[in-house]
């Protein structure tokens, strides 16, 4: 399973980011969220939502095995095992693998909790089976 985002429906409110940080870190802090909303204004005037595809590239390069699969089938970070080496960051094809040392003592990523979906009023996000690439 993975998260899917339909960017054309996004209105840029970022409720998903707050919900995400509350799940990952038990904090109100959208700077520590695992999805990204890019805003393109004043033209063309739309948003681009980047989400984790659970492709596993991050886990494949993690030297300490700190990125594992949870029972939802999502890769998640075990903070105690993360050495902040940042090997996972450049390999992420969606730029949603995070290491920001000023903000947290661990890497972080989407663990497929689904809270972002619960607060999205415009139905941008959904969790679905991973589809084969066209």
């Amino acid at each position: 399973m993975r998260l899917y985002a339909e960017s054309s429906k996004c209105s840029g409110c970022r409720a998903c980011l707050v919900a995400c940080s509350l799940n990952l870190f038990k904090e109100n802090n959208p700077k520590k969220a695992a999805l990204v909303i890019g805003a393109h204004f004043p033209a063309p005037g739309n948003y681009a939502v980047s989400v984790c595809t659970q492709c596993g590239e991050c886990a494949a390069v993690c030297p300490t095995g700190a990125i594992q699969k949870n029972d939802r089938g999502a890769y998640y970070v075990i903070p105690a095992d993360c050495t902040l080496c940042e090997a996972c960051v450049p390999v992420c094809p969606e730029n949603v693998m995070f290491v920001r040392t000023g903000l947290a003592e661990t890497a972080w990523k989407c663990d497929l909790c689904g809270d972002c979906i619960a607060v999205c009023g415009t139905d941008v996000l959904r969790i679905g089976e991973i589809e084969a690439k066209a």
Partner: peptide, 11 residues
């Protein structure tokens, strides 16, 4: 497009 304020479900 629709454009919402912070944390708004009804932009």
């Amino acid at each position: 497009n629709d454009k919402g304020c912070f944390a708004c479900p009804s932009p």
